[in-house]
């Protein structure tokens, strides 16, 4: 392997690499974000415990929903994303609609990430002190209000490192989505290697680009995490600026 060859390939094919980086980042970011929303929803539902005073019909309904969630999580965590991608892509393509590859890729990575996020959010919720729930309920807040205003913000903060890790995993693992021929970094690299016949050098460049993307993401995520811990808040609640408080004081 020669380093000068690597630079040569990078210099010559950088537009292709850049397109790959662009697609990879789009798929990884959108997939992580939608996966996060799925995780909030699914993990939140999973963590709800019916009240001591709840009706038995709603308890049974909750049990059935839990079973479906469990199946979803097990299936998507228990099979390779590459297999999920081809299966879902062709399933929809041949039976329902000739859908866009890029759309299919984002769809697959989102529901795949959602399965992991659901578990991350669920354990984040379980790590929140049960006293937080009791205090909110004792003030008359509903279980939904308690979840949205008190429990989830703390759960997200607890789980932030694991949530951020999913982004890094997705930057790397979106490479398997080349199987459905979207122009992400791995797919682009394959084409470049196929043209140059310099496999070692091409994939070395590819590896370095992935490493840059993941390191950069780590740095940004660490900075965000530090901020979360410093301000001791995770989601802004309301205007508590000095001005509004001094107004309230004057009103007394």
């Amino acid at each position: 392997m020669s380093l000068s060859k690597c630079f040569e390939i990078l210099g010559k094919y950088y537009p292709s690499f850049l397109l790959g980086v662009r697609t990879t980042l789009i798929v990884a970011f959108i997939g992580t974000f939608i996966g996060f929303l799925i995780g909030l929803f699914v993990g939140g539902i999973r963590a709800i415990r019916p009240d001591k005073t709840a009706r038995s019909s709603s308890v049974i309904f909750k049990k059935i929903v839990d079973i479906f969630i469990k199946i979803y999580v097990e299936v998507f965590r228990g099979t390779p994303m590459m297999v999920q991608a081809v299966f879902i892509y062709y399933l929809v393509y041949t039976n329902i609609v000739r859908w866009d590859k890029m759309f299919a890729a984002i769809f697959v990575i989102s529901i795949n990430t959602g399965a992991y996020m659901a578990e991350i959010i669920r354990s984040g919720i379980q790590a929140v002190d049960p006293g937080q729930n009791e205090a909110a309920r004792s003030l008359g807040m509903s279980s939904m209000q308690t979840m949205m205003d008190v429990i989830l913000p703390q759960a997200i903060k607890n789980a932030f490192p694991a949530i951020g890790n999913e982004l890094i995993v997705n930057i790397k693992d979106s490479s398997v989505l080349m199987i459905i021929s979207i122009t992400e970094l791995m797919f682009q690299s394959n084409s470049i290697a196929g043209t140059t016949y310099r496999f070692t050098e091409t994939y070395f460049v590819t590896a370095m680009i992935y490493l840059c993307l993941t390191s950069l993401s780590s740095v940004v995520l660490n900075a965000i995490e530090k901020r979360l811990n410093n301000t001791k808040t995770s989601l802004p609640q309301s205007d508590t600026s000095f001005k509004s408080i001094s107004i309230a004081k004057e009103d007394l």
Partner: peptide, 20 residues
């Protein structure tokens, strides 16, 4: 105590007033 850890003192006192 069980104060809501994710919000400041004032928000602790206003949240349930607004929601409930």
């Amino acid at each position: 105590f069980n104060l809501f850890n994710n919000m400041n003192v004032l928000d602790n006192c206003t949240l349930a007033q607004k929601r409930v």
